[in-house]
Amino acid sequence: MNQRKTIISVNNLVKKFGGFVANDNLTFDVHEGEIFGFLGANGAGKTTAIRILCGLSYPTSGKILVSGFDVYTQREEIKRNIGYMSQKFSLYEDLNIRENIRFYGGIYGMSSSAIRRKTDELIEELDLSDIAGTLIRDIPLGWRQKVAFSVAVFHEPKIVFLDEPTGGVDPLTRRQFWEHIYRAAARGITVFITTHYMDEAEYCERVSIMAEGRIEALDSPENLKNNYGVKTMDEVFLKIARK
């Protein structure tokens, strides 16, 4: 386990907004091909950290490497190697599934023939052939999220960042969504996910739990439950959040 390559390395990450410290000295590593859960209550600083890792904002201090690239100086290279999906979707509602895929493939510099080939594969795999030409606004939420995820990993990034991707979806659909996440991880894509659902935390290889800008715990769900002497991740989370 410990011999796995590190793909995200964060050392002493600090982000301040004026006097407010959003990220207080974060240090952690994410391994290649891992499903890494990034948990924390609202306002704990998760989104701030994700934005820094994605090259959307600069840290105040700290040394951060994403896929081997520096977040201060190599943002372009980082962006080329990551995929991203947020709680609001990243799909265009007035474009159909095929057009959305085409667009995102295009902005990541994929060739037209590669896009066409992969789109057919994807539509086959997701069993979407009946609705491939339907506008996103006309298909159900659960489907949209699956498509959005597939689009986020369409260009085979090294890492995919999922910022509360399953918000507002029923448990069954969430479970199906996680099958897609596992499939992506099996292909070697590192998954960095934030979530509010503790049942989802159980699906992660390792989780970190943030509170007030600091990482309070980081381990596999199994070890965390043992360490805190409780039966579910829910209880682990409450214990840490109440501290």
Binding site: E76, K79, S86, Q87, K88, S90, E93, I107, Y108
Partner: peptide, 13 residues
């Protein structure tokens, strides 16, 4: 508003 701007900003564009 729809959140697609974030997706664009995260892309290499």
């Amino acid at each position: 508003e729809t959140g697609t701007m974030e997706a664009l900003l995260v892309s290499p564009l």
